[in-house]
Protein backbone atom coordinates (compact mmCIF):
# COMPACT_ATOMS: atom_id res chain seq x y z
CA UNK A 1 0.00 0.00 0.00
CA UNK A 2 1.25 3.48 -0.81
CA UNK A 3 1.78 5.71 2.16
CA UNK A 4 -0.45 8.76 2.50
CA UNK A 5 2.61 10.88 3.23
CA UNK A 6 6.18 9.84 2.71
CA UNK A 7 9.42 11.72 3.35
CA UNK A 8 12.68 10.58 1.83
CA UNK A 9 15.81 12.32 3.07
CA UNK A 10 13.89 15.56 3.55
CA UNK A 11 15.77 18.57 4.90
CA UNK A 12 14.76 22.16 5.37
CA UNK A 13 17.55 24.54 6.30
CA UNK A 14 17.07 28.19 7.18
CA UNK A 15 20.55 29.58 6.67
CA UNK A 16 22.74 27.73 9.16
CA UNK A 17 19.72 26.39 11.08
CA UNK A 18 18.77 22.85 10.19
CA UNK A 19 15.08 22.95 11.07
CA UNK A 20 14.52 19.58 9.43
CA UNK A 21 17.54 17.43 8.82
CA UNK A 22 17.32 14.27 6.75
CA UNK A 23 13.90 12.97 7.74
CA UNK A 24 12.53 9.66 6.44
CA UNK A 25 8.93 9.02 7.28
CA UNK A 26 5.91 7.04 6.12
CA UNK A 27 2.42 7.84 7.29
CA UNK A 28 -0.17 5.21 6.41
CA UNK A 29 -3.57 6.07 4.99
CA UNK A 30 -6.27 6.47 7.65
CA UNK A 31 -3.70 6.76 10.41
CA UNK A 32 -3.76 9.21 13.32
CA UNK A 33 -0.12 10.23 13.33
CA UNK A 34 1.43 12.49 15.96
CA UNK A 35 4.63 14.48 15.59
CA UNK A 36 5.92 15.08 19.08
CA UNK A 37 8.82 17.22 20.16
CA UNK A 38 9.86 20.36 22.00
CA UNK A 39 9.61 23.73 20.28
CA UNK A 40 12.26 24.12 17.60
CA UNK A 41 12.53 20.38 17.03
CA UNK A 42 11.31 20.59 13.44
CA UNK A 43 7.87 19.04 13.83
CA UNK A 44 5.94 22.12 12.71
CA UNK A 45 8.31 22.63 9.79
CA UNK A 46 7.58 19.04 8.71
CA UNK A 47 3.88 19.82 8.79
CA UNK A 48 4.42 22.98 6.77
CA UNK A 49 6.46 20.97 4.27
CA UNK A 50 3.50 18.64 3.77
CA UNK A 51 1.10 21.57 3.38
CA UNK A 52 3.49 23.28 0.95
CA UNK A 53 4.13 26.45 2.97
CA UNK A 54 7.79 25.50 3.04
CA UNK A 55 9.86 23.90 0.32
CA UNK A 56 12.42 21.26 1.20
CA UNK A 57 16.08 22.16 0.80
CA UNK A 58 16.71 18.53 -0.08
CA UNK A 59 14.79 15.29 -0.36
CA UNK A 60 11.45 14.22 -1.75
CA UNK A 61 7.95 14.41 -0.31
CA UNK A 62 5.19 12.28 -1.75
CA UNK A 63 1.46 12.36 -1.13
CA UNK A 64 -0.14 9.02 -2.01
CA UNK A 65 2.88 8.13 -4.07
CA UNK A 66 2.88 11.34 -6.07
CA UNK A 67 5.77 13.77 -5.66
CA UNK A 68 4.64 17.23 -4.59
CA UNK A 69 7.89 18.98 -5.43
CA UNK A 70 7.08 22.39 -6.91
CA UNK A 71 3.38 22.04 -6.12
CA UNK A 72 2.01 25.13 -4.33
CA UNK A 73 -0.26 24.69 -1.26
CA UNK A 74 -3.42 25.44 -3.22
CA UNK A 75 -2.84 22.46 -5.49
CA UNK A 76 -2.41 19.91 -2.70
CA UNK A 77 -5.31 17.78 -1.45
CA UNK A 78 -4.43 18.47 2.18
CA UNK A 79 -5.97 20.92 4.60
CA UNK A 80 -4.57 22.47 7.73
CA UNK A 81 -5.97 23.42 11.11
CA UNK A 82 -3.73 26.28 12.20
CA UNK A 83 -2.43 26.85 15.69
CA UNK A 84 -4.15 30.25 15.85
CA UNK A 85 -7.08 28.80 13.82
CA UNK A 86 -6.58 31.52 11.15
CA UNK A 87 -10.31 32.13 10.73
CA UNK A 88 -11.08 34.99 8.35
CA UNK A 89 -12.22 37.85 10.61
CA UNK A 90 -14.25 39.58 7.89
CA UNK A 91 -16.37 36.52 7.09
CA UNK A 92 -19.03 34.96 9.26
CA UNK A 93 -18.69 31.39 10.47
CA UNK A 94 -20.68 29.90 7.60
CA UNK A 95 -18.63 31.70 4.94
CA UNK A 96 -15.44 30.72 6.74
CA UNK A 97 -16.43 27.06 6.57
CA UNK A 98 -17.65 27.40 2.98
CA UNK A 99 -14.48 29.23 1.85
CA UNK A 100 -12.79 26.20 0.29
CA UNK A 101 -16.00 25.21 -1.48
CA UNK A 102 -16.48 28.75 -2.79
CA UNK A 103 -12.94 28.69 -4.19
CA UNK A 104 -13.69 25.31 -5.76
CA UNK A 105 -16.66 26.90 -7.52
CA UNK A 106 -19.45 25.14 -5.61
CA UNK A 107 -22.74 27.07 -5.91
CA UNK A 108 -23.89 29.21 -3.02
CA UNK A 109 -26.86 27.09 -1.91
CA UNK A 110 -24.90 23.85 -2.11
CA UNK A 111 -21.84 25.17 -0.29
CA UNK A 112 -23.93 26.71 2.47
CA UNK A 113 -25.77 23.43 2.89
CA UNK A 114 -22.51 21.51 3.17
CA UNK A 115 -20.99 24.09 5.49
CA UNK A 116 -24.04 23.91 7.73
CA UNK A 117 -23.70 20.13 7.72
CA UNK A 118 -20.04 20.37 8.72
CA UNK A 119 -20.94 22.77 11.54
CA UNK A 120 -23.55 20.25 12.68
CA UNK A 121 -20.87 17.56 12.75
CA UNK A 122 -18.83 19.84 15.03
CA UNK A 123 -21.81 20.42 17.35
CA UNK A 124 -22.08 24.03 16.20
CA UNK A 125 -25.39 24.11 14.32
CA UNK A 126 -26.90 27.58 13.96
CA UNK A 127 -23.64 29.40 14.61
CA UNK A 128 -23.19 30.27 10.92
CA UNK A 129 -24.21 33.91 11.15
CA UNK A 130 -21.74 34.79 13.88
CA UNK A 131 -18.37 36.38 13.38
CA UNK A 132 -15.31 34.42 14.57
CA UNK A 133 -14.62 37.15 17.13
CA UNK A 134 -17.89 36.27 18.86
CA UNK A 135 -16.85 32.68 19.51
CA UNK A 136 -14.93 31.11 22.38
CA UNK A 137 -11.56 29.43 21.82
CA UNK A 138 -13.09 25.96 21.74
CA UNK A 139 -15.74 27.02 19.25
CA UNK A 140 -13.19 28.67 16.97
CA UNK A 141 -11.21 25.48 16.97
CA UNK A 142 -14.28 23.51 15.87
CA UNK A 143 -14.97 26.03 13.12
CA UNK A 144 -11.37 25.66 11.95
CA UNK A 145 -11.84 21.88 11.90
CA UNK A 146 -15.13 22.17 10.02
CA UNK A 147 -13.53 24.56 7.50
CA UNK A 148 -10.77 22.05 6.81
CA UNK A 149 -12.91 18.89 6.78
CA UNK A 150 -15.66 20.27 4.56
CA UNK A 151 -13.22 20.05 1.64
CA UNK A 152 -12.80 16.31 2.27
CA UNK A 153 -9.00 16.44 2.24
CA UNK A 154 -6.99 13.25 1.82
CA UNK A 155 -4.80 14.33 4.73
CA UNK A 156 -5.69 16.69 7.58
CA UNK A 157 -2.80 18.55 9.17
CA UNK A 158 -3.24 19.86 12.71
CA UNK A 159 -0.69 22.30 14.11
CA UNK A 160 -0.96 22.22 17.91
CA UNK A 161 -4.70 22.80 17.61
CA UNK A 162 -5.34 22.30 21.31
CA UNK A 163 -2.50 24.47 22.57
CA UNK A 164 -4.66 27.54 23.23
CA UNK A 165 -7.39 25.72 25.12
CA UNK A 166 -7.67 25.27 28.87
CA UNK A 167 -7.05 21.85 30.39
CA UNK A 168 -10.63 20.67 30.73
CA UNK A 169 -11.56 21.67 27.19
CA UNK A 170 -8.34 20.19 25.87
CA UNK A 171 -9.13 16.77 27.29
CA UNK A 172 -12.62 16.94 25.88
CA UNK A 173 -11.32 17.94 22.44
CA UNK A 174 -8.76 15.11 22.52
CA UNK A 175 -11.59 12.61 22.82
CA UNK A 176 -13.65 14.37 20.17
CA UNK A 177 -10.76 14.53 17.71
CA UNK A 178 -10.06 10.86 18.13
CA UNK A 179 -13.72 9.95 17.62
CA UNK A 180 -13.93 12.29 14.64
CA UNK A 181 -10.89 10.78 13.01
CA UNK A 182 -12.33 7.28 13.33
CA UNK A 183 -15.61 8.43 11.86
CA UNK A 184 -14.28 10.35 8.83
CA UNK A 185 -11.38 7.96 8.25
CA UNK A 186 -9.09 10.72 6.99
CA UNK A 187 -5.36 10.56 7.70
CA UNK A 188 -4.63 12.97 10.56
CA UNK A 189 -1.14 14.38 11.09
CA UNK A 190 -1.04 16.07 14.44
CA UNK A 191 1.77 18.25 15.77
CA UNK A 192 2.13 18.67 19.52
CA UNK A 193 4.68 19.29 22.24
CA UNK A 194 2.45 17.59 24.80
CA UNK A 195 3.47 13.96 25.18
CA UNK A 196 0.25 13.10 27.00
CA UNK A 197 -1.74 14.36 24.03
CA UNK A 198 0.37 12.43 21.54
CA UNK A 199 0.27 9.19 23.51
CA UNK A 200 -3.45 9.30 24.19
CA UNK A 201 -4.63 10.15 20.67
CA UNK A 202 -2.20 8.84 18.11
CA UNK A 203 -1.95 5.46 16.43
CA UNK A 204 1.73 6.15 15.94
CA UNK A 205 4.07 8.81 17.27
CA UNK A 206 7.24 10.29 15.81
CA UNK A 207 9.47 11.95 18.39
CA UNK A 208 11.45 14.88 16.99
CA UNK A 209 14.59 16.51 18.30
CA UNK A 210 16.93 18.94 16.55
CA UNK A 211 15.30 18.42 13.18
CA UNK A 212 15.63 14.67 13.27
CA UNK A 213 13.26 11.85 14.10
CA UNK A 214 14.46 10.08 17.23
CA UNK A 215 11.91 7.29 17.17
CA UNK A 216 8.72 6.27 15.42
CA UNK A 217 6.35 3.75 16.95
CA UNK A 218 3.01 3.19 18.57
CA UNK A 219 2.53 5.06 21.86
CA UNK A 220 3.24 1.99 23.99
CA UNK A 221 6.52 1.30 22.21
CA UNK A 222 7.66 4.88 22.45
CA UNK A 223 6.76 5.09 26.10
CA UNK A 224 8.01 1.74 27.31
CA UNK A 225 10.88 1.10 24.97
CA UNK A 226 12.43 4.47 24.18
CA UNK A 227 15.26 4.16 21.71
CA UNK A 228 17.32 7.16 22.75
CA UNK A 229 18.08 9.18 25.86
CA UNK A 230 16.11 12.08 24.42
CA UNK A 231 12.96 9.99 23.95
CA UNK A 232 13.27 8.45 27.41
CA UNK A 233 13.55 11.87 29.00
CA UNK A 234 11.04 13.78 26.83
CA UNK A 235 8.32 11.13 26.86
CA UNK A 236 7.34 10.66 30.47
CA UNK A 237 10.43 12.21 32.11
CA UNK A 238 12.12 8.88 32.68
CA UNK A 239 15.26 8.35 34.77
CA UNK A 240 18.00 8.27 32.16
CA UNK A 241 20.86 6.29 33.67
CA UNK A 242 24.44 6.53 32.41
CA UNK A 243 26.34 3.26 31.65
CA UNK A 244 28.17 3.09 35.01
CA UNK A 245 24.90 3.33 36.91
CA UNK A 246 23.24 0.71 34.70
CA UNK A 247 26.14 -1.61 35.33
CA UNK A 248 25.96 -0.90 39.06
CA UNK A 249 22.34 -1.97 38.95
CA UNK A 250 23.25 -5.25 37.33
CA UNK A 251 22.68 -4.32 33.69
CA UNK A 252 25.11 -3.96 30.77
CA UNK A 253 27.39 -0.92 30.50
CA UNK A 254 24.93 1.09 28.44
CA UNK A 255 22.51 3.96 28.82
CA UNK A 256 19.21 2.83 30.28
CA UNK A 257 15.81 4.21 31.15
CA UNK A 258 13.92 3.59 34.37
CA UNK A 259 10.36 4.90 34.62
CA UNK A 260 9.72 6.74 37.92
CA UNK A 261 6.43 4.89 38.32
CA UNK A 262 8.26 1.53 38.09
CA UNK A 263 10.26 2.30 41.23
CA UNK A 264 8.76 1.50 44.63
CA UNK A 265 9.85 2.57 48.09
CA UNK A 266 10.96 -0.16 50.49
CA UNK A 267 12.21 -0.16 54.08
CA UNK A 268 15.93 0.58 54.36
CA UNK A 269 17.81 -2.73 54.07
CA UNK A 270 21.29 -3.72 52.98
CA UNK A 271 20.09 -5.56 49.89
CA UNK A 272 18.44 -2.58 48.24
CA UNK A 273 19.88 0.71 47.03
CA UNK A 274 19.35 3.35 49.67
CA UNK A 275 19.15 7.10 49.32
CA UNK A 276 17.93 10.36 50.84
CA UNK A 277 14.80 12.09 49.62
CA UNK A 278 15.96 15.53 48.41
CA UNK A 279 12.72 16.94 47.04
CA UNK A 280 9.03 16.14 46.65
CA UNK A 281 6.73 17.57 44.00
CA UNK A 282 3.02 17.08 44.52
CA UNK A 283 1.22 16.27 41.26
CA UNK A 284 -2.25 15.49 42.54
CA UNK A 285 -2.68 11.83 41.64
CA UNK A 286 0.92 11.13 42.67
CA UNK A 287 4.01 12.73 44.18
CA UNK A 288 7.34 12.82 42.40
CA UNK A 289 10.26 12.30 44.75
CA UNK A 290 13.91 12.74 43.92
CA UNK A 291 16.16 10.37 45.84
CA UNK A 292 19.92 10.90 46.02
CA UNK A 293 21.64 7.52 46.30
CA UNK A 294 24.14 6.85 49.04
CA UNK A 295 26.08 4.10 47.33
CA UNK A 296 27.57 1.06 49.00
CA UNK A 297 25.47 -1.89 50.06
CA UNK A 298 24.83 -4.81 47.80
CA UNK A 299 24.29 -2.56 44.77
CA UNK A 300 27.02 -0.69 43.02
CA UNK A 301 25.11 2.50 42.34
CA UNK A 302 27.58 5.40 42.37
CA UNK A 303 26.85 7.74 45.30
CA UNK A 304 25.14 10.98 44.33
CA UNK A 305 23.07 9.42 41.52
CA UNK A 306 19.59 10.91 41.57
CA UNK A 307 16.59 8.73 40.85
CA UNK A 308 13.05 10.04 40.49
CA UNK A 309 10.28 8.00 42.05
CA UNK A 310 6.56 8.40 41.46
CA UNK A 311 4.56 7.57 44.58
CA UNK A 312 0.81 7.07 44.17
CA UNK A 313 -1.47 9.31 46.22
CA UNK A 314 -2.71 6.39 48.31
CA UNK A 315 0.82 5.50 49.51
CA UNK A 316 2.50 6.87 52.61
CA UNK A 317 5.08 9.55 51.77
CA UNK A 318 8.51 9.74 53.41
CA UNK A 319 9.64 13.17 54.57
CA UNK A 320 12.14 15.19 52.60
CA UNK A 321 15.53 14.37 54.16
CA UNK A 322 14.43 10.89 55.18
CA UNK A 323 16.22 7.71 54.06
CA UNK A 324 14.41 5.25 51.83
CA UNK A 325 15.18 2.04 50.01
CA UNK A 326 14.30 1.63 46.34
CA UNK A 327 13.21 -1.46 44.45
CA UNK A 328 11.98 -2.28 40.97
CA UNK A 329 11.24 -5.16 38.72
CA UNK A 330 14.43 -5.97 36.72
CA UNK A 331 12.42 -5.75 33.48
CA UNK A 332 11.66 -2.12 34.24
CA UNK A 333 15.29 -1.24 33.54
CA UNK A 334 15.16 -0.66 29.78
CA UNK A 335 18.52 -0.53 28.04
CA UNK A 336 18.57 2.11 25.29
CA UNK A 337 19.50 1.13 21.76
CA UNK A 338 21.31 4.37 21.01
CA UNK A 339 22.87 7.04 23.15
Amino acid sequence: MTAAVSFRGVSRHFGPVRAVDGVDLDIAEGEFFAMLGPSGSGKTTCLRLIAGFERPTAGDIRLFGQSVAGLPPYKRAVNTVFQDYALFPHLNVLDNVAYGLMIAGVGKAERHRRAEEALGLMALPGYGARKPSELSGGQRQRVALARALVNRPRVLLLDEPLGALDLKLREQMQDELKTLQRRVGITFVFVTHDQGEALSMADRVAVFSDGRIQQVGNPDEVYRRPRTRFVADFVGSSNVLPPEVTRGLGGPAAWASLRPESVVLTPVKDVVPVGVVTSARYLGSATRLVVRMEGGGAHGVPPGTEIAVLVGAERALPEVGGRVGLAWNPEALHVLEAA
Binding site: A51, G52, F53, P72, P73, Y74, V78, N79, T80, F82, Q83, D84, A86, L87, F88, P89, H90, Y99, G100, M102, I103, A104, R147, A148, N151
Partner: peptide, 27 residues
Protein backbone atom coordinates in the same frame (compact mmCIF):
# COMPACT_ATOMS: atom_id res chain seq x y z
CA UNK B 1 -3.38 40.63 8.90
CA UNK B 2 -1.69 37.53 10.31
CA UNK B 3 0.38 35.61 7.79
CA UNK B 4 -1.58 32.50 8.72
CA UNK B 5 -4.69 33.94 7.05
CA UNK B 6 -2.89 34.12 3.73
CA UNK B 7 -1.59 30.60 4.23
CA UNK B 8 -5.04 29.36 5.27
CA UNK B 9 -6.53 30.77 2.10
CA UNK B 10 -3.93 29.01 -0.02
CA UNK B 11 -4.40 25.86 2.02
CA UNK B 12 -8.11 25.94 1.18
CA UNK B 13 -7.30 25.99 -2.50
CA UNK B 14 -7.20 29.69 -3.32
CA UNK B 15 -4.64 30.85 -5.86
CA UNK B 16 -2.68 33.99 -4.95
CA UNK B 17 -5.08 36.10 -7.03
CA UNK B 18 -8.08 34.62 -5.24
CA UNK B 19 -6.40 35.13 -1.87
CA UNK B 20 -5.86 38.76 -2.77
CA UNK B 21 -9.48 39.21 -3.78
CA UNK B 22 -11.15 37.32 -0.94
CA UNK B 23 -8.80 37.86 2.00
CA UNK B 24 -6.14 40.54 1.57
CA UNK B 25 -8.23 43.16 -0.18
CA UNK B 26 -11.23 43.05 2.21
CA UNK B 27 -8.91 43.17 5.20
Amino acid sequence: VPGSLVEASGDLGASPAQTFRHVLWPL
